[in-house]
Structures are given as structure tokens and as C-alpha cells.
Design a protein around this nucleic acid. Structure first.
Length: 192
DNA sequence: AGGAAGATCTACT
DNA sequence: GTAGATCTTCCTA
């Protein structure tokens, strides 16, 4: 299976968010591998976006302004959230991975989460980072590099008919445009 | 040094 | 459906 090149992440956040649906997220831990299909994403912009962390400045906005195709990880309400940086260097943008459909490494995920219910394993941004054991140590890693602990590969082709969109979830101030995208009818999305 | 906010989760009714 | 726990980062004094 082919790894996605860095150019894949050059375009604007909402385009990349749609394109990431159906792709395969791979997490390597030592000799073990956990993988899943991305089924739900959200797009975030720069300072024009009231919900974006780039607005506050600091270390995170530096990563967001950096080159695309890198991980951006940070904590909210005691949960780590996984994002991928988009847009060329100098432009702020990111895509939040909200949910995946587990493919392999199920038993390891269950151990990390402490539950046995597969449907609740990765159907939320904080849940999936716990299942994949993602922390801020993995910040700023290139996901287009085979050697990284987090990588994204070509997955299943998704037709535009299968894609649904809505407003973002949990944000205090949203924009006028729907920026959340998910695969219609998939049981692993956080909210139908 | 202290405090508040925040793109959430779980448990309980 | 709602309440409370959660913890890192950034802002202010």
C-alpha cells in the first residue's frame, strides 16, 4: 500500500479533510502496529477562524505555520487531540482526526482504553488518541515518512455520495460554513 | 505564581 | 440529558 506524499497536504484544510476520509492511519509502537480507516474529520484555519488554536499564538501556531504533513497534538479537557498540518509553510491550517474505524491491533487498543466494546474504541477525538497511545511526545512528526511512528496510507476510495458534512462539534464559536466531514452511515463516527 | 479556558469523556439520573 | 473530572498551555500580575 502506498504512503501519501507531502504534496497531498498542500491544499486548504477543508479539501484535505474531505480527501483524508477513507485513508488508512497507521500507528507503530515497537514491534506492534495499530491501524484504522479515517471516517471523520474537521477543518481548522488560521487567525480568521475563531475556534482555531493558531489564534492564540505560541508553540502550536508555529507548528501550524510550518510545513504540511506533520502531526499537531495538543490537550483539551484532559484529552490529546490529533491533527495534521495543511497548507504550505507560512500559512496556518490543520485537520482534526475525530474518528477512525479499527482495522488491526484491536487487542492493543482495548488494553489502552480498558474496554472491550469495539464500537466505542475510537469513535471520538480523545478516545482514538488514547487507543493509539498518542501523546505530545509525538508532536511535529512527518506522516509522509515511512520511519515515523504515525503515518497515513492510501486506503479505500470514497465517492462523494458517501460523504456527509455538518458544523463542527464542541466549538464555542464556529464559522458560517460546515467544516466537519464524515462517511455517511459508518458506525464509528462520533455523532450521526 | 496563579488562574482560566478549552476542538472532551464518563457516569449517573 | 446533565454534571463533574480532566491537565496543558497561555495570559496576567
Amino acid at each position: 500500500m502506498k504512503i501519501l506524499p507531502q504534496e497531498f497536504y498542500l491544499s486548504n484544510p477543508s479539501q484535505v479533510a474531505v480527501a483524508l476520509l477513507g485513508k488508512k492511519l497507521v500507528r507503530k509502537i515497537g514491534n506492534y502496529t495499530i491501524s484504522g480507516i479515517i471516517v471523520e474529520t474537521e477543518a481548522y484555519y488560521g487567525k480568521s477562524d475563531p475556534a482555531s488554536r493558531a489564534r492564540k499564538g505560541g508553540k502550536l501556531s508555529k507548528i501550524m505555520l510550518g510545513p504540511p504533513g506533520r502531526t499537531l497534538i495538543y490537550m483539551v479537557h484532559g484529552n490529546w487531540l490529533l491533527n495534521i498540518v495543511t497548507c504550505p509553510k507560512g500559512v496556518a491550517g490543520a485537520v482534526l482526526i475525530r474518528a477512525i474505524e479499527p482495522l488491526s491491533g484491536l487487542s492493543l487498543m482495548m488494553r489502552n482504553r480498558g474496554i472491550n466494546d469495539v464500537k466505542k474504541l475510537t469513535n471520538g477525538p480523545g478516545r482514538l488518541t488514547k487507543a493509539l497511545n498518542i501523546t505530545n511526545k509525538l508532536n511535529n512528526l512527518p506522516v509522509f515518512d515511512k520511519k515515523s511512528e504515525i503515518t497515513i496510507y492510501e486506503g479505500r476510495k470514497i465517492s462523494s455520495k458517501e460523504i456527509a458534512k455538518s458544523f463542527r462539534i464542541g466549538v464555542s464559536k464556529d464559522l458560517d460554513t460546515p467544516l466537519r466531514f464524515y462517511i455517511k452511515g459508518n458506525p464509528f463516527v462520533s455523532r450521526p
